[in-house]
Amino acid sequence: MNEQPPQNHESLLAVFDREMREHARPDGPGVRVERTGDVVRQAGAAHDWNGVVWSSPDLDAVRADAAIAAQVAHCVERGYDEFEWKLYAHDRPADLGARLLAAGFEAEDPETLLVAPVADLPTEVVLPDGIRLRTVRDEADVELMALAHEQAFGADRTRLRHQVLARLKEDPDHFVGVLAMAGDEPVSSARMELYGGTGFAGLWGGGTVQEWRGRGVYRALVAFRARIAAERGFRYLQVDATEQSRPILQRLGFTVLGTTTPYLYRPTS
């Protein structure tokens, strides 16, 4: 883990594709990563994240359609309510997104893939007045984390609560959760996945409630997690960023490597 990280776009993207996609690790207890045909997918229970994380870079039209059909069948066979194909802008064939749509997948909003060498990032935590940070340690903290996430993103908190509780109970060494608190109220939450066997840690969440946005809470959460990643010897931080957080991350030293779009398949009942 002590080798010098590559600095150019192509090299960083190649490292990311190899370590985080083609040789992906399970993102939680009870799930597994499978290479089947031309794709690598994660498979778990219905409440886990299930989907394709990598497809062969030489995938052609015929093999792409066959791979898509196989993943749809896998989704139906496992009884999933939802299955995701995580498509990156450089994936092939060039019309893979259109082929997923034709097979019944639905495209969500694209996000920007950003990566930064940990050594290049600020790790000093600067907080606005009235805010303190604390790590997520127990079930009560998980409830606060899920509440902050729901209020910041307007998303249901059920799946996040389940996943974080499972990580704390069964794999706490590869997970960091953090809360930003204003008094007794959670105003932001974030998490970091530490991908053992790779040089990468992933930043997730980081949503802040409306009244606390623009005051540096998000930057403080990034610095807090970057410091922990550095202490544990990880070389890179990776983020799938919304347009709200992308400019902040670029100012902090992250490099844009492309975009990623979730394509979701939801079987009809």
Rank of each mutant, 00 (worst) to 15 (best):
L257H: 07
A223P: 04
A43E: 13
F175P: 11
P247R: 09
Y265C: 12
R251E: 13
E243K: 08
V222Q: 02
A220C: 10
E193R: 12
A119D: 14
L249R: 02
E106L: 05
G183M: 07
Q163F: 01
A201G: 15
T112R: 11
L257R: 03
S56K: 07
I68K: 01
D138W: 09
F234S: 04
N8W: 00
Q244F: 12
T260R: 13
P128F: 06
E22Y: 10
T208P: 00
R235A: 15
D91A: 09
A61N: 12
L252R: 09
R219D: 09
V126E: 11
A116W: 00
T208R: 00
G154M: 11
R78M: 15
H90K: 11
S56Q: 08
T260S: 13
L100R: 04
P57R: 08
P117Q: 08
D129A: 15
D27C: 09
W85Y: 14
L144P: 02
A152I: 05
W212K: 04
D240I: 00
D60E: 12
L249H: 04
E139G: 12
G28A: 10
Q151T: 06
G79V: 03
G183I: 08
A45K: 14
D141C: 08
F254Y: 11
A64F: 08
R157Q: 14
F83H: 10
G199R: 10
H162Q: 13
A73S: 15
A190F: 01
T36N: 13
A24V: 06
L168W: 04
S11N: 13
F254M: 06
A66M: 10
D120N: 14
M192W: 00
C75M: 06
